[in-house]
Design a protein around this nucleic acid. Structure first.
Lengths: 168, 168
DNA sequence: TATTGTTATACTCTATAACTATA
DNA sequence: TATAGTTATAGAGTATAACAATA
């Protein structure tokens, strides 16, 4: 693949491979930490972190899902787990009886607070330790451009009800 | 989390989030393509791509695993699937009777060749379309530094036989 | 004894489809 | 009819531990 690189320059290919490897290793390390420290998967951590950041610690299920989970049932499953552990509470929305509002509990906040320092430590250690301020700045700016670009058009989160054709 | 960012600068946090989101979206898109086009998971594609690149299209199981899979049984499982489809062949090594050599078949090479253009297309479209040459260069260089750093010390691939303590 | 790989098994996670209820 | 969410279910993938065989 590195030799037969149809349509990508050597530099592009190198950047792509580096991105894949870096995010894979980072993901693995961070996953491991969250699991050991808080018995949380990365997805669960992301969901909790979102809620902690949200006004009133509350979001609709659908809004909570966006970008983190790619199917409704997947979110229901994860929310069920978090609920069972008392990290979130679900209640039906007063505005729209179809909607379910999800709120972090105190226990949930405490867990995030307990896990966050170590999480951040790992990220700093693995990702930022070897980088200068200029490097970080460049990384931020370039990845920001890519993110905005990706958000614009392509396959997004758990919205569509339609189904795709199967391969086999 | 974005407010309560203990120990990371705003720029670092932004870079981290952008990295996570970009690699997640890219991963999702590329996964989907490989599944539809070649009925391959990304892991399977990585394994095949490695073999295609390897001298003689052949690698030991353990060497094949490195960086792609984090447990021996996981590799055996994936190799079993690829074998069943005739994409690889396994045979015991002449040098070391314990080892198993894995080789891509013609069918395997053909599949990679068939899938690669579309794969590359998606990567170019999603990742590189909005980037200048200088951006790509910067991305490559910064991520290269990070990758080398990560490779140096931390948790690596499917080597150790030791086990870790459990959380709960 | 250490290493290579396989197997059995249990578990986590995800997605599809069918369903209920509300707008 | 469309949207929000749940449930049932099936499938893919992973990891641990026990195992056999070779170094």
């Amino acid at each position: 693949m590195s030799e037969a690189a149809p349509g990508l320059s050597a530099e592009q290919l190198g950047a792509y491979f580096a991105l894949v490897e870096v995010s894979s290793l980072l993901q693995y390390a961070v996953d491991e930490h969250l699991r050991l420290e808080g018995d949380l998967s990365y997805v669960q951590f992301q969901l909790l972190a979102r809620l902690v950041d949200a006004p009133g610690g509350t979001l609709r299920m659908t809004d909570l899902a966006d970008g983190v989970v790619y199917s409704r049932s997947g979110l229901t499953y994860q929310a069920g787990l978090l609920d069972k552990r008392g990290l979130i509470v679900r209640s039906s929305s007063p505005d729209d009886e179809r909607s379910v509002m999800v709120a972090v509990t105190e226990v949930g906040r405490d867990l995030v607070a307990r896990v966050l320092p170590g999480h951040v430590d790992r990220v700093r250690q693995l990702l930022f330790e070897p980088l200068s301020g200029a490097d970080v700045s460049a990384l931020h700016s370039v990845l920001g451009v890519v993110r905005d670009h990706m958000r614009a058009a392509p396959p997004r989160s758990a919205k569509p009800r339609a189904r795709r054709k199967r391969a086999g």
